[in-house]
């Protein structure tokens, strides 16, 4: 579940060994196949209760899950082209500093309405 070539082998956890990664690549597709098959069997035995035409198709949910997820990731990342700005875009570099003893946010410096000579 991780790829970080620079860390030492002894710093890798069990989740970062190639063996585990191979195992995950077996388990996930196998689980997909199992539940798809289970749905097919349920459909053949007439144990399913579809509410629409499309969801009567036994692997409808698998297809929806796969396509939705892919669409979100593949299409969503293009939003960055429109929406992404540098960190501190709104509040400037000091934004994350504590504001103890500072109350500059509420200074209304040039709105002193009583003095025309300014």
């Amino acid at each position: 579940m991780s790829d970080h070539p620079e860390i030492r082998p002894e710093e890798r956890s069990v989740f970062e060994t190639p063996k585990t990664l191979r195992l995950i690549w077996i388990i996930v597709p196998a689980t997909c196949a199992f539940f798809a098959l289970m749905n097919v069997v349920l459909a053949i035995l007439h144990k399913t209760h579809p509410h629409f035409t499309l969801d009567a198709f036994p692997v409808f949910y698998g297809v929806v899950g796969f396509l939705s997820f892919s669409f979100i990731v593949l299409a969503g990342q293009h939003l960055r082209k429109i929406l992404m700005r540098p960190e501190g875009y709104y509040d400037g570099a000091e934004a994350e500093l504590p504001r103890i003893g500072r109350d500059d946010e509420v200074a209304v410096d040039d709105a002193d309405l009583g003095d025309a000579r300014r």
Binding site: V28, F35, G62, G65, F69
Partner: peptide
Amino acid sequence: FEHVATQMQLLMFAILA
């Protein structure tokens, strides 16, 4: 069975994606 099968399909295929 149906609900478990359909929900697990949705989730596992999404994880596969």
